[in-house]
Amino acid sequence: MTIIYALIMFCILVMVHEGGHFIAAKSVGVKVNEFAVGMGPILLKKVKGETRYSIRLFPIGGFCAMEGEDDDSDDERSFGRKPLWAKAIIIVAGAFMNLLLAVVILACSIYYIGIPTTVIGEFSEISPAREAGLSVGDKIVAIEQYKIKDWNDITTAISSQTDDTVSITVERDNKALTYTMQLAAEEATGRKIVGITPDVSRSVGSAIVTGGKATWHMTVSMVDVIGQLVTGEVSAKELTGPIGITVAVSDSVKYGFIYVANLAALISLNLAIVNMLPFPALDGGRLVFLIIRKVTGRAITDEIEGRIHFVGIMLLFGLMIYVTWQDIGRFILK
């Protein structure tokens, strides 16, 4: 079942990516010969208009086959005969859809969980705050000298205390009240707590904004790791492939739907970023060749570009084999 879950997740993410190319191609007038889910022999197919839609045997990807994408077609609606801006939109659209999917998934997860507020929702079993006189519904506005704007401010202010006591100012019935209490230690981590949990709010707008911010932070982290791979600060042995992803899916399923959704957002964002790297055979590499051709006036022929992309594909296959071998030793033979 874990393998099935992983394949379903991967197929959905690839469909979204190729769907981005498909929608962009149709919108700028490029003829799409086939849109396929999966690879290998065709299981089901349906021709609608000028496009064949197919489901193929191996659920390991998919593709959007455009007229004149890999050769010089005389068709006026071929990819090669479109202006640079149209080609660029088609190439970038796949990664954009994966990026958008990551934001949507995270926003939905955040809406489902709720965004923690600065209002006290419940007290823990051991709660110095309750003993000191705080009540459910109190809005925390200050802790010692710290002004409180969100829940993270509360946890930061409490954990930074050097004394055994802390003063918390709350707003209750439009009045500011200050209480002093002893700090307790969380049993599992030893961190300082006062025994409160936040009330949560559910707002579509806030969830979208927070989902966008979370996606941005994940993007920065991924780009940083890619930079460390290039400089050698992070070893290629740390990379993981299909086997590692399957293991991650298995672990996520154990913890619940939200963890699976967040993993899907992470993988979708990873697909978006990796595909836009300026490497042959990737969307980013194709975009670089478009720009070079525009600047140099087609100094690079279709044949030369095709050969370079082929070398890029072989290198990517080699990397995939290496990563898969690492995963086998890490997860299967350990």
Score class of each variant (00 low, 15 high):
E303D: 01
I208S: 05
G133R: 04
G306K: 04
M314T: 06
L183F: 14
K334V: 14
I245L: 15
Q228D: 10
I154M: 01
L282C: 06
W85R: 12
N152D: 13
I273R: 06
R307M: 14
I196R: 14
E186R: 15
I292A: 03
I258P: 00
I308D: 08
D150M: 01
E76L: 15
G312V: 06
K237A: 11
S252A: 15
S167P: 01
K48L: 01
V16C: 02
P198S: 05
G211R: 00
G227P: 06
D163Q: 11
G19Q: 01
L101M: 15
F289T: 09
V225E: 04
V223M: 14
D302Y: 04
W325Y: 14
M15I: 09
Y111Q: 07
D199I: 06
I208F: 15
E122Q: 13
M66T: 04
A236Y: 11
T210V: 09
T189R: 13
L99Y: 15
L183C: 08
G241W: 10
L263N: 06
G38M: 09
A129E: 05
G137Y: 00
L271F: 11
V28Y: 00
L43K: 01
A248L: 14
Y322D: 08
K213S: 12
G306P: 02
A142Q: 02
L333E: 04
A25T: 08
G61H: 00
V92M: 14
Y112R: 13
I313N: 03
F317Q: 05
M9I: 11
F310M: 12
A65M: 14
V14M: 03
V30C: 02
P59I: 01
L43N: 01
I313W: 12
E18T: 02
P116T: 12
T219S: 09
A24C: 03
A272Y: 09
K254P: 00
I113L: 13
V253M: 15
K213M: 08
R172S: 07
R298T: 05
F22M: 02
M15D: 03
I267A: 09
H309D: 09
L282W: 06
V288R: 03
E125D: 15
A248Y: 07
T197L: 06
M314G: 07
E131C: 01
S159D: 09
I12E: 00
I60W: 01
L84D: 15
I328D: 01
V220W: 02
V14E: 05
I115L: 12
A264K: 10
M66N: 01
S135N: 05
A142P: 00
A299W: 09
W151V: 02
R298L: 08
F35T: 04
G40E: 01
L100Y: 11
V204A: 10
S78A: 15
E144L: 09
V170L: 02
Y322I: 12
V200P: 13
H17C: 03
I4V: 12
N33T: 12
K147H: 08
A132W: 03
L183N: 04
V103L: 13
P242S: 15
I196W: 14
P59M: 03
E303Q: 13
G318L: 10
K46N: 04
D150P: 00
S206K: 10
V141L: 08
I143S: 00
L229I: 05
D75G: 08
V295H: 08
S252E: 09
K87T: 00
L315A: 10
T51N: 10
F22L: 03
S124F: 04
L239A: 09
S250Q: 13
F123P: 08
A264M: 12
V223Y: 12
M181I: 06
